[in-house]
């Protein structure tokens, strides 16, 4: 039995918990891993982050990796609880510019009191509220990415205008905990909207994933459980007026391929079976030791899948949206450009 849907594969780059604190070798280490993943044709790499454990800023690390890779998608974790939505969206848009259309972001929240005390602005609200706010940050980010229409820059010497201001939009976003006027300071990024990933392995994040994610990560013990979760996310997406065909659901696999029963070859079998059964759109490998596990995955598991015609042997497109088969969205302001001009809009 073969699947008609393309298989998507991704992997996590951050060293697991309790690993040595990162230092001067972070850049070289991460570039080496990213190239390994790129040689295997993976869709994207995630890089975990939080303010609560040792590590460099993940978006910074992947910006450093971008010029040294060509195709693989780059998806840092970005937290939305104590950060400024306006800065966050500008940084993600910039990652898309420096990677020429390969950026995503995995939205996360900062639920602990310890994290709140690093900022001293407000105590940590209940997790459900934080995910609601994360959803608002995703929404305002899309508005800001869209706030420059693709053809806003005109360089019209005759009238002396560099931009057509009718194609720049105030977003006037009013959320529960913040508001943003806009427009963004960054022109619309190459993908239009960089890819939004939500780790929906935690139930608290599931609603935000259904509403805002282009890629949702799930955890499941059986193919049936995974299929049910995927169906639930699709229902949620539909309830928010979204096309479920524009939502990819990837199963997170925390494994050491060698320790996996039967080894990295058997892992390929599992991936092929679950995917063929329609349980998920792909897999997100969370290695125990990235250097060792990602190498085994790339060297053994992926070639087996490619050899069976289930996975790409080379990249066909150039952007992360291309790899994931997701459309490049039009700016939400494009149609109404004429009435939404100027500051008074």
């Amino acid at each position: 039995m073969t699947s008609t849907r393309p298989l998507h594969l991704a992997a996590e780059l951050a060293p697991g918990h309790g690993r040595a604190a990162p230092g001067p070798d972070t850049a070289a280490r991460t570039v080496a891993l990213a190239r390994l993943a790129e040689a295997a044709g993976l869709d994207f790499l995630t890089h975990d982050d939080s303010f609560a454990r040792p590590g460099l800023d993940a978006l910074a690390v992947l910006a450093r990796v971008a010029p040294e890779t060509r195709s693989v998608g780059l998806v840092p974790t970005v937290t939305t609880t104590h950060t400024e939505p306006f800065h966050v969206q500008a940084a993600v848009a910039t990652l898309d510019w420096v990677s020429r259309g390969r950026a995503g972001w995995r939205i996360d929240v900062s639920p602990t009191g310890a994290e709140a005390r690093l900022f001293g602005r407000r105590p940590a609200p209940p997790t459900a509220e934080l995910w609601q706010e994360a959803g608002e940050v995703a929404e305002v980010s899309r508005k800001l990415w869209d706030s420059w229409e693709d053809d806003a820059e005109i360089r019209d010497a005759a009238t002396g205008r560099f931009v057509d201001r009718r194609k720049l939009h105030h977003v006037n976003f009013q959320g529960a905990t913040f508001s943003v006027k806009g427009p963004s300071i960054v022109p619309r990024p190459p993908q239009g909207n960089p890819v939004t990933v939500v780790d929906a392995t935690r139930p608290a994040a599931r609603e935000t994933a259904a509403h805002h994610a282009d890629v949702a990560l799930i955890a499941a013990a059986t193919a049936e459980e995974a299929a049910a979760l995927r169906a639930e996310l699709h229902r949620g997406a539909r309830a928010h007026g979204r096309d479920p065909g524009q939502l990819r659901v990837l199963l997170s696999l925390t494994v050491d391929p060698d320790a996996y029963e039967g080894g990295p070859g058997a892992l390929a079998g599992l991936i092929a079976d679950w995917h063929a059964g329609g349980a998920v759109d792909g897999f997100h490998l969370v290695p125990v030791v990235p250097e060792r596990d990602l190498e085994r995955f790339a060297a053994v598991t992926v070639p087996l899948l490619a050899g069976r015609g289930l996975f790409r042997t080379s990249y066909e497109g150039t952007t992360l949206r291309d790899h994931l088969g997701l459309e490049r969205p039009e700016s939400q302001y494009a149609a109404g450009a004429r009435v939404r001009t100027g500051a008074g809009a």
Binding site: A60, A63, A91, A93, I185, V186
Partner: peptide, 12 residues
């Protein structure tokens, strides 16, 4: 008009 976020472009 229009520029990238500085620290991100410097990391690249």
């Amino acid at each position: 008009v229009g520029r990238p976020e500085s620290i991100t472009v410097l990391n690249a």
